[in-house]
Amino acid sequence: MRNLTLLTVPLLAGCAGRHNWLSSAGAEADRVEGLFWVLLIGAAVIWSAVIGAAVYAQRRQVDPGLEHQARWFIVWGGAVIPTVLVCALLIWGLVILRDITPDKGDLTVRVDGERWWWRVTYDGPDGDVVTANEIRLPLDQTALFRLTSDDVIHSFWVPAIGGKMDMIPGRETTLALTPNKTGNWGGLCAEYCGGAHALMRFDTVVMEPDAFDAWLAAEAAPARVAPDDPGFAVFRDEGCGACHTIRGTDARGPVGPDLTHVGARARLGAGIYAMTADNMARWITDTHAMKPDADMPPYPDLSGARLEALVTFLLSLDHAE
């Protein structure tokens, strides 16, 4: 009995997980879940009926008088009913797919899959708001995601809320997500895209609409960087700005994630590490130990006061007034 409990505890813990599509944290996941239960229970019923019929047929004496009926039973049970059921399931599945890929939403979020992180652009009230690796959504509103990729195929998935949908180079795909539970839900790339694929993740934070609006306004604001900030001096000297953008400064590199408010994100390296000073220092000096294959060069020579100043500067890029 104890062994059984030990076995089931991790299973149950999995059900409550932030990556679990049975958490029903979104309208789209609920649609798919509905289909799942019908398929599962329906399959169980049909399986039992078929096995039951087989066992019954084995046990029974052959009765030539029933041959005629038996053949019609096979025609109905083996051909007509399955055809009708498969047809109904096809239509149901297609309707779900149509409904979760609309062309309008309450807000639009563009997500570009990159190896191995996410470029995120909101349609803000005053134009585009560019950020990365963290997606925030207002509760009970339908966010329309416009998904693209400029390298290989990725797949965008927030299991607890809905999805998934492929991101295909040269094409734009859409996906709706209507979260209905606040919280922090996990997102990930669901299509193998190269070395660090398994480390290509993101947080999806579902907020009350007011809090979301405040967050979006803060995210839209440029960074406040003091002209004599010693950390920014290191950032500039090391050439980080060739790849990274910090709005409000002359760092406008388009290659890596936008760092304007990197300190406001909960996680580092596309959703994989806590945003702490230690992790940040390691990320900069020993990038590939943190994330093998990441497309950022490590800076092993940075140390001491310069590294500390750079880390302090990056973590200060948050939303605080």
Binding site: T83, C87, L90, I91, L94, L97, R98, D103
Partner: peptide, 16 residues
């Protein structure tokens, strides 16, 4: 006949 119906159905569910 059934297979042809299955080919036609998606076109009627998706408008784009």
């Amino acid at each position: 006949g059934v297979a042809i119906a299955f080919t036609v159905i998606p076109g009627f569910v998706f408008g784009s």
